[in-house]
């Protein structure tokens, strides 16, 4: 059963990844697309806590790093999404008591996670010596943040409902 849950979680991530790569470039603003994988990780963190979200973030990050057309050093998105899972998971732990976070909390978490995720990825590139211009970097971070916030009302409720259904007993106990 645990394997089945892991499989379903990874299927959600894969679906998000494929949409991100094949559908959203058609709607992209300067090549910036909503980071659906990040939204899924945030959704997992808000329903299931940091441990699960970090593991899922690692898996989603590795998928983002390896699936075509990725060409950057593998492990960079994994690192960014592990940190996102941790940060978003802290929000859930902080608001222990009410099982469903308020929509304002969700939006704030998505904003913080998007900022942290894109920044960690970009900074890892700067550390590794990628030629990244700072104005472009800021533009991408802000653009990604707006995109992620825009998609939050569409993506987060079904994702969170799904993760809640995957583990109803545990979500209830922890939430």
């Amino acid at each position: 059963m645990t394997w089945l849950r892991a499989l379903v979680a990874f299927a959600i991530v894969s679906f998000a990844l494929v949409l991100q790569v094949s559908l959203f470039p058609h709607l992209a603003w300067h090549g910036v697309v909503p980071n659906l994988c990040l939204l899924v990780v945030v959704g997992a963190a808000l329903t299931r806590g940091p441990q699960f979200a970090m593991v899922l973030g690692f898996a989603a990050g590795v998928a983002l790093d390896l699936a075509p057309p990725a060409d950057h050093l593998a492990g960079r998105w994994a690192l960014a999404l592990v940190v996102v899972g941790y940060v978003a998971g802290q929000v859930r732990q902080g608001s222990r008591g009410d099982s469903r976070p308020a929509s304002g909390t969700v939006l704030a978490t998505v904003a913080a996670s998007s900022f942290v995720g894109t920044s960690v990825f970009a900074l890892s590139g700067v550390v590794l010596g990628d030629p990244i211009a700072i104005p472009e970097l800021l533009e991408v971070i802000v653009g990604a943040l707006l995109w992620d916030l825009l998609l939050t009302p569409l993506v987060l409720p079904p994702v969170m409902a799904l993760f809640r259904r995957l583990e109803p007993a545990l979500a209830h106990m922890n939430g």
Binding site: V21, N35, L64, V140, A144
Partner: peptide, 9 residues
């Protein structure tokens, strides 16, 4: 498929 700007490649 197209890589996103977030990946800077």
């Amino acid at each position: 498929g197209m890589g996103s700007s977030q990946s800077f490649s």
